[in-house]
């Protein structure tokens, strides 16, 4: 990759990010969200009359809101289809990533969607991993599927 500069060849030196890993604790609110996920529940936050999803530690006006379980169904607001992974390798089969909004809420979640026919407005619900495999993170949800 060497190039010519005004004083001859320009050198390069290689380097790498040396951190072993990052570990993120869930936070005070995240701890309750994590516990709910273990139970197969998704939480939002009630700020006045608004229900915000995902839950956050405080309302836009800085006040403390009330954590509530989000009831379905979820509606597909938008989606995209991915064919390659983040390194540019072709996936065995394309995956659908959808923005899903629960009924009566603001915001929503981005997650995998498995459906024969994908369209905006599709009603869906989450499919959780078996209880013993859950770790209190969003990947405890395998994907969303259409509601019968």
């Amino acid at each position: 990759m060497n190039k010519r500069g005004s004083h001859g060849e320009v050198a390069h030196v290689e380097g790498e990010m040396e951190v072993e890993k990052y570990v993120y604790p869930p936070g005070t609110l995240g701890e309750r969200v994590a516990e709910a996920l273990l139970e197969g529940k998704l939480l939002g936050i009630k700020c006045g009359n608004d229900l915000l999803v995902p839950a956050r530690p405080y309302c836009p006006d800085y006040g403390r809101g009330e954590l509530v379980e989000v009831q379905g169904p979820w509606t597909v607001e938008s989606y995209t289809i991915i064919y390659k992974d983040m390194r540019g390798e072709r996936l065995k089969e394309p995956q659908v990533i959808a923005l899903l909004k629960p009924e009566g809420a603001q915001g929503g979640l981005i997650h995998y969607l498995k459906a024969e026919k994908v369209f905006v407005g599709l009603k869906a619900r989450p499919v959780f991993k078996p209880r013993e495999e859950r770790r209190g993170v969003l990947s405890d949800i395998l994907y969303f599927i259409p509601v019968e």
Partner: peptide
């Protein structure tokens, strides 16, 4: 033991250009 903890390992690699003057120094 805590639920909800996320671990993540970055895999960032770089090639730093020495630029013009430093290339002469290294040579």
């Amino acid at each position: 033991r805590m639920a909800g903890v996320i671990e993540y390992k970055p895999t960032a690699k770089y090639a730093y250009s020495a630029g013009q003057a430093l290339s002469v120094f290294l040579k």
